[in-house]
Amino acid sequence: MIDVMQMKAYIELYNKNYKKSNELIRSKLDCYKSIKEDSFYQLYALFMLVTNFVDLNDDANRIKYYTDFKTLENDTTITKYLYKIHDVSLNISFSKMFLTRKELDSTAFYLKKVDDMRLYMNNFDKENQFKNYIAYYEELKDTQNKNNYIDSLKNHNQNLINENINASYNINESFIKNSKILEVETKKNFLNRNWIAFLVTLLVVGVVFVFVKYKSLKRVLKDFSKRRREYSLIENNHDKLKLKA
């Protein structure tokens, strides 16, 4: 239920309906704060609020809710990594906000702060950091550093392309390997099926052979019994004739 409530707020944020997103979050903020066993819900709610107020250009509420956000840094129900990956994204948005305002001193402060949090950046964060640096040096008319960061951004994107190519190659290699294993297993199964078919056929032939032999033996025994009876009858008649003589 809590996840659904936050998802609704996130959808509004994603669609740039920042005020609507804030309304949904603030109406449930006390509820999120009350979940003491897992403060992530409060963390994520505050993360969205700060993000929304950055885009709404509302410094008072941005500072207010970011201050609340920072109180969770040492919360034992949240890992350091989880806190930092959200914090670095917020600070990148602060850099961009001050760039838009052309407040370059504040921009430089947050650019440096984000650099110190590089370990917690995802690829999207890294791309945005490079873009912010490019825009920052563009404002300073510093072509050399601007071009350096353009090159860094190109290298970053190329690395992502290479990673995707390598991942695709590894997937293909794995597919080929599994296909070969499957082929071998299929051949084994086919061979096993042939052996089973052979053994079943052999068993059927054996049963038929025994049945035929049994029928033949039964007929021989029947003939033998019949002949034995006939012989006994002849022998008895012969004995009777001898007595009469």
Rank of each mutant, 00 (worst) to 15 (best):
D3R: 07
A9F: 07
A9L: 13
I11M: 10
E12W: 03
L13D: 00
L13M: 04
N15V: 02
N15R: 09
K16Y: 05
Y18L: 03
S21Q: 01
S21I: 01
N22D: 12
I25H: 11
R26P: 06
R26K: 15
S27M: 07
C31T: 09
Y32H: 07
Y32Q: 13
K33Q: 10
K36L: 11
E37H: 08
E37R: 05
S39K: 05
F40D: 02
Q42M: 15
L43I: 04
V50Q: 00
D55Q: 05
I63L: 15
K64R: 08
Y66L: 14
D68P: 03
K70I: 14
E73S: 15
N74S: 15
D75C: 03
D75F: 01
T76W: 07
T77E: 05
T77C: 03
T77I: 04
T77Q: 03
K80M: 06
Y81N: 14
L82M: 09
Y83L: 07
Y83C: 04
K84C: 14
V88L: 06
L90G: 00
N91M: 12
S93Y: 04
S93W: 09
K96Y: 09
K96T: 09
M97L: 07
F98L: 09
T100E: 12
K102V: 04
E103S: 11
L104I: 06
L104M: 15
T107Y: 00
T107W: 01
Y110I: 06
L111D: 04
K113A: 04
K113H: 07
K113V: 01
D116I: 07
L119G: 12
L119I: 11
L119M: 13
Y120P: 02
N122Y: 07
N123Y: 15
D125A: 06
N128H: 06
Y133A: 01
A135C: 12
Y136V: 05
E139P: 01
E139D: 06
L140P: 02
K141M: 07
T143V: 12
K146V: 06
I150L: 10
D151V: 15
D151E: 14
S152N: 13
L153N: 01
N155E: 12
N157C: 01
N159W: 00
N162I: 14
E163K: 07
N164P: 00
S174H: 05
S179M: 10
S179P: 06
I181N: 03
V184Y: 15
K188W: 11
K188P: 08
L191E: 13
R193P: 04
R193F: 14
N194G: 13
A197Y: 11
A197H: 03
A197W: 02
F198M: 07
T201P: 08
V205P: 00
V212G: 08
K218V: 01
L221A: 05
L221Q: 10
L221W: 02
D223R: 03
F224N: 10
S225C: 12
K226T: 13
R229S: 08
S232Y: 11
L233M: 10
N237V: 00
D239R: 05
D239C: 03
K242A: 01
L243K: 11
A245L: 11
